[in-house]
Amino acid sequence: MADKQSACATCQPKGLCGGKGLTTLKEGAWANNPLAIQVLGICSALAVTNRLENSLVMGAALIFVCVGSNLIVSLLRKCTPYRIRMIAEVAIIATFVILFDQFLKAFYWDMSKQLGPYVGLIITNCIVMGRAEAFALQNPPILSIVDGIANGIGYAVILAIIGFFRELLGTGEIMGRTIPVFSEWYTPNQIMILAPGAFIALGIVIGIFNAIKGPAPEEKK
């Protein structure tokens, strides 16, 4: 987290939010990807990725919660008493999580049933809390929204990749639909829809992500 702020402090003031917007976006979604680099919030990443649809909804939920809580925490950052800031953050995050959960229950019943307790458990997701504490508390609202989007996307994209491969390999289908030719020929690999498959898939995705990204700057020195 510390290197993140120093990276932001050095960039030149121009463009969106004095040039910090793009850096923040890149930092959150790529260079400091919450799942692949910081390895945060993997409980939900392991639990709900057995179907692509579930992964997408979970990713959307996290983007919504992350953006909402970052915005409110950032707006209130000057009047929040330091001693109770964490409790205040949790209260704000919980509000957004329950809002999303209620929305799913009311309008996407089937999805809500499949995701089970994992939407509610976003409250304990380290990514959301971490961004509120480390970023939104020190930065203006619009930049905090950008940060929320960046981290949410960083999480959602990886989740979608894992969900895509787990569903494809585990059931031979995509989004619950059969693929012509492929589905008839393919023998579903059941381990991919079970929990061990999630560990294997997550490990391989993180490995490939890091291989593409290359070592972190401080490791190069």
């Binding site: 023998t187 690999n189 059941q190 381990i191 991919m192 079970l194 061990p196």
Partner: peptide, 10 residues
């Protein structure tokens, strides 16, 4: 172990 979890029926 992988085979017996992945393809129990086969």
């Amino acid at each position: 172990c992988f085979l017996s979890l992945a393809y129990p029926k086969t």
